[in-house]
Design a protein around this nucleic acid. Structure first.
Lengths: 342, 342
DNA sequence: TTGGGCATCCAAAGCGGTTTGAAGCGATTC
DNA sequence: GAATCGCTTCAAACCGCTTTGGATGCCCAA
């Protein structure tokens, strides 16, 4: 059943039927009701491909996912973000199209998305410092919103980010208040913008209390269980081991916990751990009582909000760049306690 | 730059230019070269929306992701599968469109995808026994491939699955050969088809050696770290605790490991653990030497293959239903050893 | 009476490609 | 020399919708 057939069946022109269904004013209310009823009865759904061609809009948003050899973006955090964004798209009748491409094809993919008209805009994931994608997207004129920020980008652009610096600063201060002075940082890869901001927060909090950050207590690696385990194990073997850790994610935090327990120490008594909790839907940090003390910020909610921002940018291309900074909560769990007296 | 402009520039008709670029035989080779060169020079890319309308094909594949209140499908395994499928789509110039919808809207979404013509086919995730989606998709005539199988479906359909029964049977036999007789099963939720098959494999292996499966040694829950921890802790507290475990995933295996270590036992010596390893790209089971002994089957590869099967089904709708069963490898890691003499 | 305004509706022209049917033309065949 | 054929090319229809620019009829004010 297409528009023409429905129009014939109703004894109306396609024009009127189209207008009736799309809520245009120049159609008699009685007629509109007839049309709407007939559309429902015959289970008429306008063909998306035709709408897209006729309107010139793709009604779709792209997410480009590079298959990196080194840093894998296909991680749990990404999945939850996508799920959040997808909820927003569904509610607004937009399609979400994912392009999984070898990372050397990333630029070509963005250019293709624009010139072939597959999408109306894109979301940029996992920005690095001086991320080239921002200039690229501006150049080709494809609307975009960045999830995170890219230090070193001159002109303003749209982004939504969590205040990572502040989160880690507060977490560090919290540990300092508990009497910890040797605090290990198990960070993500530090070419990622968020990781740098987190380290900055950590360093700032220490320096504010006149503690010189110790390079031996700062690790930077993939946010995996193994990497967390290794980094923490190494630090615990130092002559002056840390009494507390900041871990970049739930997963690396689990590695840290394993290192702590393997060393015969008790979590929350001998060693304190604070993680950053993205509040992943399938990997909760405890139920009522959080297992880990954490800086928490739902990445799924971030996905929803970033997608909303993008749809807004697409609808109003000439409004200035939107920017939004979310604050993480500091939630107290069972993994922190006063520094052991020593 | 669109087709008409390019044609004018070349002094040719749109017809000829279109044919030249699409490799049709009825065009002079010299002309074709001219056209191809001009297209490249002017950076011409045919508009996807127009192609889709003209050809009647969506050149897109759908993945419907229900937001369940109970069982969350947005998990790491799903992310890796999507990444694999996405690779296949990119190579074949198909778009991957993800629909994230409340689970009560799932049926409506499939119907809409079909009647609005957004996609040429879909992949069905996480089938349950008697999964209603299979009959639905057949009814509305939307090509599909199931990742997994749905016991209780009468008519044949396309699927790609891992031999879960065999994998868990072999793993159980391996433990039995090592002298373990009390083996705990930390399974996924057993309304999921794969979970049932795994339990069947486990039970079959036990019965073949005249061991009666003990209900107290069989747990079924979400495949999370906490659930794994709880199930294993409970079993280890039994009067006759198990000396080995089968865990449904890397993550629940980590929970089991924590339970083992919390009980003061040593993994691989006092208690053996075998996990099912989906070979997730961001969560490797060790590097050279696997941490866990495991039944391994790359879910990312499954994604690639399932997508290929679907594209094939779309291209040849009248060929019979394709079905493919992948075997998991049994890889030996450091988490298994002979049963302690007792 | 007339003409302007308003409420409705429609024909037709896009959107940017693909595809059908036909035509031009030099070479070949009879 | 006319008919046929293969090779190229093109005009036009079409995909299914939106949207522009009338057209129609009716009511009301001048």
């Amino acid at each position: 059943m297409n528009l023409k057939e429905l129009a014939t069946k109703l004894g109306l022109s396609p024009t009127t039927v189209s207008r009736a269904l799309n809520g245009y004013p120049e159609v008699n209310e009685t007629t509109r009701e007839r049309v709407v009823a007939a559309a429902k009865r015959h289970n008429y759904h306008p063909n998306t491909r035709a709408i897209r061609l006729a309107t010139g809009r793709a009604m779709a948003v792209g997410h480009v996912i590079p298959i990196a050899t080194r840093h894998e973006i296909v991680n749990p955090v990404f999945a939850d973000f996508i799920a959040g964004a997808g909820e927003t798209y569904s509610r607004n009748d937009y399609d979400m199209v994912l392009s999984v491409v070898p990372d050397e094809d990333e630029e070509t993919t963005y250019r293709g998305l624009k010139s072939k008209g597959n999408v109306d805009g894109v979301i940029v994931h996992a920005p690095r410092t001086h991320d080239p994608r921002i200039a690229l997207l501006r150049e080709i004129g494809l609307p975009f919103v960045v999830h995170g920020r890219a230090t070193g980008t001159a002109e303003p652009y749209c982004w939504l980010d969590v205040n990572n610096r502040r989160a880690f600063q507060r977490a560090t201060e919290f540990l300092l208040d508990l009497g910890h002075t040797r605090i290990g940082l198990v960070n993500g890869l530090e070419f990622m913008d968020f990781a740098i901001r987190r380290r900055t927060g950590y360093v700032d909090a220490l320096t504010a209390r006149s503690i010189t950050p110790d390079p031996a207590l700062m690790a930077s690696d993939e946010m995996t269980e193994i990497a967390g385990f290794r980094a923490a194990t190494r630090m615990l073997a130092l002559p002056q081991p840390p009494t507390a850790f900041l871990a970049s994610s739930m997963i690396s935090g689990m590695g840290v916990r394993r290192a702590v327990e393997s060393a015969g120490l008790v979590l929350g008594r001998d060693v304190s751990v604070i993680i950053h909790d993205d509040d992943l839907s399938y990997m909760k940090n405890g139920e009522d009582v959080p297992i880990f003390t954490a800086t928490r910020s739902s990445v799924r909610e971030a996905g929803r909000l970033t997608a909303e921002m993008l749809l807004d940018v697409i609808a109003h291309p000439d409004a200035g760049p939107q920017q939004r900074l979310l604050e993480a909560e500091l939630i107290i769990g069972q993994s922190t306690g006063p520094a052991p007296k020593g």
